[in-house]
Write a protein that binds this DNA or RNA. Structure first.
Lengths: 221, 221
DNA sequence: GCTAGCCTATCTACTAGTAGGTAGGTAACA
DNA sequence: TGTTACCTACCTACTAGTAGATAGGCTAGC
C-alpha cells in the first residue's frame, strides 16, 4: 500500500503518495539489516496494519532493494510472524522486569498501564498485537498463534498481580464471583480499546485516562 | 486484497485464494445494487478492514462487474465514507430506540453492551468504527470525520445515561473527581477492546464477560 | 401512438501502478 | 571455495480507476 503523505495530511489531492520516509531517529548505526527490517515492519504494522504496508515501503525506508528483504524473510507472512514473535517475547521480558522491580501490585499495574501509554505516545502507535488482533481474520495462519500468545501472557500476568494485590489487601476487586482472570481481561481490553478510541477521537491522553479509572475501580467494593 | 479461503483455513498452501463468497444469507431479494454494495463493504471492513478488501471482491460477491461499483461510488474512499456514515447513523438511531424503550439506566447499558455482543457473534465481526479506528492512520482523510462522530456520539450517550443512573441512585460510579464522560470512555474502550481480544484469543464470549464486569463496577463505591 | 432525447445501470476492454515473489549474478569475506 | 548479503531485472496477479458502448426505461412533443 502507498503510505499517506505526512507533510500534507490535509491535502485532499495528495492524500496518497507512493512513498514516505519513516521515522528512523531512534535507530543507531550498524544495526544488522535483519533487525532494521524487523524494527521498521513493527512500526509500520503498529501505524498502518499488516495490510497497510508493503515490502517496497520497507526497502525504500532502509535504502535496500526489495528482493533483499526476501533474503531475510522469504515471505511477508514469515516477516509478520517474526515481528509478532519478537514483540511478544520483548513484552514478556518487560513484564518480568516489572515484577522484579516494582514492589506493590498497584505500582506493577501502574507500570503496566504506562507501557501502553508510552507506545501510544510514540506517533499514536497501537499495540502491535492489538492491531493484529483487529486484523486477525485477514492474516496468514502462522501469525495468529503469536497474537494468541501475547494476549494469554498478558492475561496470566495480570491475573497473577491482581490475585496478589487482593491477598495483600491492596484491592477489593476480583471478589467472588468475579475471577482475577476476568478482571485481567477487562484490564487488557480497556487499554487496547483506549488506543483505538484515541485514534478515532484524535486524542492524546486517553490511555492514561482509562488506566486511571481502571486502577481506581480496583480499590472499590 | 485476496481474501482468505474459508473452507480450508488450516491449509498453509491455500491460505489465500483470489476470491471467496461472502455470506449473503440475510439479504432479501430486490435490494438496490447500491445498498448491496454498502452492505457487503460494511461486512468486509468489519471482517478484514478497509485495506483488506477490494472493489473486485465486492463485484464478484454480488455478481456485477467492477466498473459498476465505480458508477455508484466513484472512489473507494467515497464508498468507505458512505459505509461509515450509514453505520454511525444507524447506530445513533439504535441508541435513541434504547433510550425510548428501556426504563432504567442499568437496562439501557445492558442493551448497549448487547449491541456489541451481537455484532461480535455474527462471524466475530468487529465494530466497524473500531476496526476503522485501528486503521485510522492508513485511511483517506474523508473517512476520519465519520469515525470521530461515531465515538463522540457513543461517549455522549453513555455519559448521559451514567449521569442519570447516578442521579437516580442506581450507580455509585462516576463520583467526583471522576466525570461521567471519563467513565463513558472506559465503557466504549472496554467493549471495543473486548472484540479485538476476542479475535486474538479466538474466544466467543469475551464481550459479554467484559460487559458484565463493567456493569458490576457501576454499583461499587 | 410514435419518436427523439435523456437517464440509469450496466457492460467490455483498457490503463498505470503496486503487490509479493523469483532467477540469476556479484562482491566481500572466512 | 563456499557462504553471506546484497544486487538487477524480471514475473504474475492484483489494485483502483477510466473510456466508451449499450440496453432498457421514462417523458415531452408532435
Amino acid at each position: 500500500m502507498a503510505l499517506p503523505c505526512p507533510e500534507r495530511n490535509d491535502c485532499q489531492i495528495c492524500t496518497y503518495t507512493p512513498f514516505v520516509e519513516v521515522s528512523m531517529t531512534v535507530l543507531p548505526l550498524n544495526v544488522p539489516t535483519r533487525d532494521r527490517i524487523l524494527d521498521l515492519a513493527e512500526e509500520l504494522i503498529q501505524r498502518y496494519g499488516y495490510n497497510g504496508f508493503s515490502y517496497d515501503d520497507i526497502a525504500r525506508s532502509i535504502s535496500i532493494r526489495k528482493p533483499s528483504i526476501h533474503y531475510h524473510f522469504a515471505t511477508k507472512a514469515e516477516l509478520g510472524a517474526a515481528v509478532a514473535h519478537r514483540y511478544t517475547e520483548r513484552f514478556a521480558n518487560t513484564l518480568q522486569t516489572i515484577t522484579d522491580t516494582q514492589k506493590t501490585a498497584h505500582s506493577q499495574l501502574q507500570a503496566y498501564i504506562e507501557l501502553f501509554a508510552q507506545t501510544y505516545r510514540r506517533d499514536r502507535r497501537l499495540c502491535l498485537c492489538g492491531m493484529l488482533g483487529a486484523e486477525a481474520e485477514a492474516l496468514p495462519q502462522g501469525m495468529r498463534g503469536e497474537i494468541y500468545q501475547f494476549f494469554l501472557i498478558n492475561q496470566e500476568w495480570l491475573a497473577c498481580v491482581l490475585r496478589r494485590g487482593k491477598e495483600d489487601g491492596e484491592f477489593f476487586c476480583a471478589e467472588s464471583p468475579e475471577s482475577p482472570e476476568s478482571r485481567a481481561l477487562l484490564f487488557v481490553a480497556s487499554l487496547e480499546g483506549a488506543m483505538v478510541l484515541g485514534r478515532g477521537l484524535e486524542a492524546s491522553n486517553l490511555v492514561e485516562e482509562v488506566g486511571l479509572a481502571l486502577l481506581a475501580d480496583l480499590t472499590k467494593r
